[in-house]
Simulated scan of single mutants.
Amino acid sequence: MGSSRLRPPAALPDAHARTRNLTQFVTFLVLKGSRGAGSRRRHIGRLVILVLSLLTYVAVGAWSELAIEPLQAKLQQPGAPQPEPSQPTPSAPPPAEPSPPQPSWPQPSQPAPSPLPGQAEPSQPAPGPAQQAVVGPTPSLPVGYTIGASDVLAITVWDQADLGGRFVVDGDGTFMFPYIGRVKAGGLRLQELETELKRRLKEGYFKDPQLTVVVEQYQSQRLYIVGEVRNPGTYPLTGNMTLIEAVARAGSTLPTASYEALVVRNPNGKKAEGPVLPDEAGGGNVVRVNLKALQSGAPDENVQLRNGDTIFVPRAETVYVFGQVNSPGSYAITQGTTVLQALSLAGGVTDRGATGRIKIMRIVDGEEAEVSAELTDAVQAGDTIIVPERFF
């Protein structure tokens, strides 16, 4: 019997044919190996794994021919758009958070030092738009201050630095100055003393002396602050001091202070040896100031102080609120305070209070009297407001 030999099939042109031929070829190898010794049959499992691997490889090749190759051929045609290489898109920076506006505080102007004799004043550049800011008013200098005993003067002579220094005014109003001896300063203003020193120095010592005089320590003029302030006492009168500046130096008023301050002036301009209370001075020498209006910025209430003035801040007038209120106790009032306002200071009436039967205990002609009151009635200093309980 003639033996028929198995031959590997010819390869087909397409991918499916190649896959079928490869499968037949592997089957041919398996069948051929099965005709051999029995030991070769044990390798069938290995060959099956080989077949599966080859099928996977062929399937991948077929997919590349059916999908990728036609796409590449289409892209290679003339006029076909070429894909741009992908570039990483730069991420836009996060929007900056708006910074809160910074307040532009006016910077205090610093006075330029006076030039030395014989030197030209330095030229200042014209201010630009950013430099033309509005600057607040500068504090008033004590140009009108009158020098007195115990004041400490700082005198600077620009062309003779060794002549300047600190000078204390003696009790007679004079002080010793180099070359010219005793100089009368008591009762003079600062500009007047400068003129006197220049005149004395020109008499055989200097041709055109340039000097300045300032008060380093104010000791000759003082005022007194008493009453409902945090730090009552004696304070030096510096320059053009006003009432609001003096009260600020005393630590401001206490919560128990009245809304009125009394400035007591000495009669005929006499120097006071201590504080003078309102009942010790005549009515014409007492200036009444509304502190509430002063705190609101009323310029007319800001009194110009003088040497020896006494600032007296009295205790506020009070009323007492008891009964069916949330916070019974003593409360400061002003002139014209009503019963309703006094009850508001006490936290208001409770839900058990009877607002229609409010009573006021008041001292009339030295005796205590009971007065029926309405909510719109004005109270007086020392009144005791009683809110009774409702019947139902």
Rank of each mutant, 00 (worst) to 15 (best):
M1G: 15
S4H: 13
R7N: 07
L12C: 11
L12M: 08
R18F: 01
T23A: 12
V26L: 14
I44G: 08
L54V: 10
L55G: 04
V60D: 10
P70K: 07
L71M: 10
G79T: 12
Q82M: 10
P85R: 13
P98T: 14
P98M: 13
S99F: 10
P106R: 06
P115I: 02
L116F: 05
Q119T: 10
Q132N: 13
V134R: 13
L141C: 03
V143Q: 04
Y145V: 03
G148D: 06
A149W: 03
L163G: 00
G164S: 11
V169W: 00
Y179F: 14
A185W: 03
G187V: 06
L188W: 01
L190I: 14
L193W: 03
E194L: 01
E196Y: 00
K198P: 00
R222Y: 09
V226S: 04
M241T: 12
V247S: 00
T253I: 15
T256K: 12
A272V: 02
P278N: 09
E280G: 09
N285Y: 10
V286S: 05
N290E: 04
P299Q: 07
L305A: 06
R306V: 06
N307W: 04
D309C: 04
F312W: 13
A316T: 11
T318Y: 01
P328V: 02
A342C: 08
L345T: 02
V349L: 06
G356Y: 07
K359Q: 14
S372D: 12
T376N: 08
A378C: 03
V379G: 01
G382W: 01
F392W: 15
